[in-house]
């Protein structure tokens, strides 16, 4: 089942001097239920605009967006969603407990279930001790955690998180990654925007890259990682003839009986054939690859 779908989604804003700014250009995207989708893009690429359109906070100039098959312009489309806005802000005169209870009540949760779930999420996000204090006294990281808690309290099927790691310390970031992986295990759909590639690499099934309002790539993270393999670093232990070459490839380094070779993907089979024939012992093979950040940068910097 498709959890989130956009079709030809466009958004134009009025710029200065009667100009028009294309914030989003014909976005076609389908995100399946149970999928963790990372939405990568540099600042100002259109990530938050896309999310606001999906959440009905902005009206599309053209095209449509839907959540679990319900058009985003309808209030009911938000019934199965947990949404974390970018740099979230909540009624700061309320305590975390009051706010989470308020959110749960909007989803018509049964009061005993809401009480139990509120306690669970506040404890999980390490807010239990501070739950009675007004949020105006919270740090940025604590507010961000309240934001995550309010997405979890009603246990929706779809999570839309705009920069969920923003403002969090390394412990908080690890916690969020854990939460996303847990949601993935439980078959929930998570759509989150970020400009930090490491976050995507660790938790996402699929990634979309948006640059200047256009979706320039969508692929499985696994495919990107596989296609990014550039070559191998092969460590050979040679009884004699340390420093000799194989398939015309000279060693990079020689240390005692061990030689280290950089072998490109295309030369790998021929190289290993000669190694096997020579009876040399393969001590270690390391994959040399472009990581997701290189992939992302290559797309962003593409002319």
């Amino acid at each position: 089942m498709i959890a989130i779908e956009t079709a030809g989604l466009c958004k134009q804003f009025k710029g200065k001097k009667m100009t028009r700014v294309d914030a989003l250009k014909s976005l076609d995207l389908q995100i399946e239920a149970g999928e963790v989708f990372g939405f990568l893009g540099p600042n100002g690429a259109g990530k938050s605009t896309t999310i606001k359109l999906i959440m009905g906070l902005l009206k599309p100039s053209s095209g449509t967006a839907s959540i679990m098959g319900v058009d985003s312009t309808l209030t009911d489309s938000r019934r199965q969603v947990g949404f974390l806005p970018e740099n979230p802000a909540f009624y700061d005169y309320l305590s975390a407990e009051e706010y989470i209870t308020f959110v749960g009540s909007q989803f018509r949760m049964d009061s005993s279930l809401l009480k139990r779930r509120t306690e669970d999420v506040l404890k999980r996000l390490d807010l239990w001790e501070a739950r009675k204090r007004p949020m105006r006294g919270y740090s940025k990281g604590m507010v961000q955690r309240v934001g995550l808690a309010q997405t979890l309290v009603h246990d929706p099927d779809v999570y839309i998180l705009d920069e969920p790691m923003s403002g969090l310390d390394p412990i908080g970031r690890a916690l969020v990654k854990d939460i996303i992986l847990d949601l993935k295990r439980r078959g929930k759909c998570v759509f989150f925007s970020t400009h930090i590639t490491d976050d995507v690499e660790k938790v996402c099934d699929r990634v979309g890259v948006i640059v200047k309002g256009s979706l320039v790539a969508v692929d499985l993270v696994e495919n990107i990682m596989r296609s990014g393999v550039e070559g191998y670093l092969v460590h050979l232990r040679l009884q004699d003839g340390a420093g000799r070459n194989f398939a015309g490839i000279e060693p990079l380094r020689v240390a005692g009986s061990t030689s280290e070779f950089y072998v490109s993907c295309s030369a790998f089979n021929a190289f290993m054939g000669e190694v096997n024939a020579s009876g040399a012992e393969v001590a270690l093979v390391e994959t040399r690859r472009r990581d997701l950040e290189d992939f992302f940068l290559s797309l962003v910097n593409r002319p």
Binding site: L57, T75, D76, P85, Y91
Partner: peptide, 14 residues
Amino acid sequence: ERRYTFSVLSLPVS
């Protein structure tokens, strides 16, 4: 102004 509406209007509230 304080961006509370982003949180509240993204709930199932018209």
